[in-house]
Design a protein around this nucleic acid. Structure first.
Length: 544
RNA sequence: GGGCGCGUAGCUCAAUUGGCAGAGCAACUGACUCUUAAUCAGUAGGUUGAAGGUUCGAUUCCUUCCGCGCUCACCA
């Protein structure tokens, strides 16, 4: 019978011999690999199945800890028989007895294997086990002399072999690249990594629960779109062969969700991936998860309140309360902040610029924002008082004000803060303020120096929408590749009449970072985008 | 793309001004029936990321390349 590991071993061997200079992370180590294959054969010779199909356990390891972490007398009073499975994370052999730690469900449990209890054959099996192997054991619970809850094993069942060595048990896996590339090893070795992703799951569950509670329905809209709309970003392009047409991976679901609001789905949301063909960084991954929600018959204030509730509830779901720790590192010093998701600040963009203006004693006036001249002077003042800010005198004034806000205020926004009223020039899909057409009913939520959310009163006047798109096209001609494209079908949809609505997007990855004190987006995405693994030396150089 | 830093055994890390490339864990052999970073005795494991240069001699100095990290720019 064909043994799967034989083929693999050959592949591994050939791979190694044809790539002598290649760095192979975490060892496709031939000698250890071969040794462990040999052991596997000997394990089979003992009557075990190499890769069995199932194991009927009575308890998970977390269940054992929660149910039986009792005093010795209680454990001895009634013998508790258990069958548990797990991965061997530590093993200590002492002649005719030994201990091991099994890891399962993120927790560890010690087992005690005595030759007298498991028999000759069982003990032979125990001696052939390696770190990383999966086994099942049956036996009874007891406490060792040092008091550790353990399984007194009566039978060992071999479940699966680890042919590659796990990282060193003490330091574990710290190499950042290997952690992301081989997340499976990272998850085995680093319980805090596992914890972050469990929290991420709770965060998303909670967001769904809150929105569902408000009568929203979850929908799925296209990931592949003929026009990448709904945001300002460069898209990825792909091609459909049969239709012979280019499609874009979506940069936002926005325009499709609003089409649904036109269609009478008054409260919709989607939690899914967006793709933006831009740089990577501690806050940026090319694909990231966005929650977008639209509610008919309300405005930006209404959706702002819903969003705030979603986030506050998420904090409770993830951390048990509305507080979360946020560590800020600035020039070697570390300061720990406590983010309070029940205490929100609100200020307009203009107020924020004034509040965080770097010049001492000479804050801008509201009237300074009213003219292109006034704003230009502000940029000059800012650049004298602070580091240089990029500025193109031909760009629309509103765009400059938004850049001024990012330069002056963003770095100060640690506690949850809602910034509202954005320039019309940078808000092609938002409804204007009734009394100030240069400004829109739009808000963004900031925390931990990051933008995590963006929402507004949805522009539902099709003719205004057409003019906004046309203004964006001008920006595009000016060289702004990210300016919004014209979407005729979206304008047609609006022409059928969209009810007044408020909409919002929340960056789930960034929110997850904030709630788990993670300081790179790669720590909250299981498989972040990395360069492909490739040969480092001669081959790489030749390829150039 | 710019700047800074790093790359040594499977993993975590050493190596004096440029002078024989080392330790712990993991692995292998042996001892050990309550250990938990188990212990004890022994063994094996390296083209020091790659190529070139300087030198009697390079892990160390120089150049280029590759890979990774941080950061700036880009990026709502």
């Amino acid at each position: 019978m064909g043994h799967p590991s034989e083929d693999l071993a050959e592949i591994v061997y050939n791979f190694r011999s044809s790539n002598r200079n290649q760095r192979i992370p975490l060892a496709l180590d031939e000698s250890i690999y071969q040794q462990r294959r040999e052991k596997l054969k000997r394990i089979e010779a003992l009557g075990q199945t190499a890769y069995r199909t199932r194991y009927e356990f009575t308890h998970t390891i977390p269940q054992i800890w929660s149910q039986f972490d009792k005093p010795v007398e209680e454990l001895e009073a009634r013998r508790v028989n258990v069958r548990v499975a797990g991965r061997i994370m530590a093993i200590r052999l002492m002649g005719k007895a030994g201990f091991a730690h099994l890891q399962q469900g993120g927790q560890k449990l010690q087992i005690y294997v005595k030759k007298d209890a498991v028999g000759e054959n069982g003990f032979e099996l125990y001696k052939l086990l390696d770190l990383g192997d999966h086994i099942g054991v049956s036996g009874y619970l007891f406490r060792t002399r040092t008091g550790e809850l353990s399984v007194h094993v009566e039978e060992i069942t071999f479940l699966s072999k680890d042919l590659l060595p796990l990282p060193e048990k003490w330091h574990g896996l710290t190499d950042v690249e290997l952690r992301y590339r081989q997340r499976y090893v990272d998850l085995v070795m680093n319980p805090e990594v596992r914890e972050v992703f469990l929290k991420r799951s709770k965060l998303i569950q909670s967001a769904r629960r809150t929105l569902d509670g408000h009568g929203f329905i979850e929908v799925e809209t296209p990931m592949m779109q003929p026009i990448a709309g709904g945001a300002v970003a460069r898209p990825f392009v792909t091609h459909h062969n049969t239709l012979d047409m280019d499609l874009y991976l979506r940069i936002a679901p926005e325009l499709y969700l609003k089409r649904l609001v036109v269609g009478g789905l008054d409260r919709v949301y989607e939690i899914n991936r967006n793709f933006r063909n831009e740089g990577l960084g501690w806050r940026w991954n090319p694909e990231f998860t966005m929650m977008e929600a639209y509610q008919a018959y309300t405005d930006y204030q209404g959706i702002m309140n819903v969003t705030q509730e979603v986030i506050t509830e998420a904090s409770i779901a993830v951390n048990g309360n509305t507080k979360s720790k946020w560590t800020v590192r600035e020039g070697g010093t570390e300061s720990v902040h406590e983010l309070d998701w029940a205490n929100w600040q609100r200020m307009t963009m203009r107020e924020a610029i004034i509040k965080f203006w770097p010049e001492v004693g000479a804050k801008p006036e509201m009237s300074d924002f009213a003219s292109a001249e006034g704003v230009k002077k502000l940029v000059e003042r800012f650049n004298r008082a602070h580091s240089h800010m990029a500025y193109d005198p031909n760009e629309p004034t509103g765009k400059t004000i938004a850049a001024l806000f990012e330069a002056a205020a963003e770095e100060h926004l640690t506690q949850p803060t809602i910034i509202y009223e954005f320039p019309t020039a940078v808000s092609p899909l938002s409804k204007q303020k009734a009394d100030e057409p240069e400004w829109t009913e739009r808000f963004e939520i900031y925390a931990g120096q990051m933008e995590i959310s963006n929402g507004f009163s949805e522009l539902n006047d099709p003719e205004d929408q057409r003019r906004r798109f046309e203004a964006q096209l001008k920006e595009r001609e000016r060289g702004d590749e990210e300016a919004h494209q014209m979407d005729e079908d979206y304008i047609r949809a609006l022409s059928y009449g969209m009810p007044p609505a408020g909409g919002v997007g929340v960056g789930i990855d960034r929110l997850c970072m904030l709630l788990t004190d993670s300081h790179t987006i790669r720590d909250v995405i299981l498989f972040p985008v990395l360069r492909p693994e490739k040969s480092t030396t001669t081959e790489g150089a030749e390829a150039k």
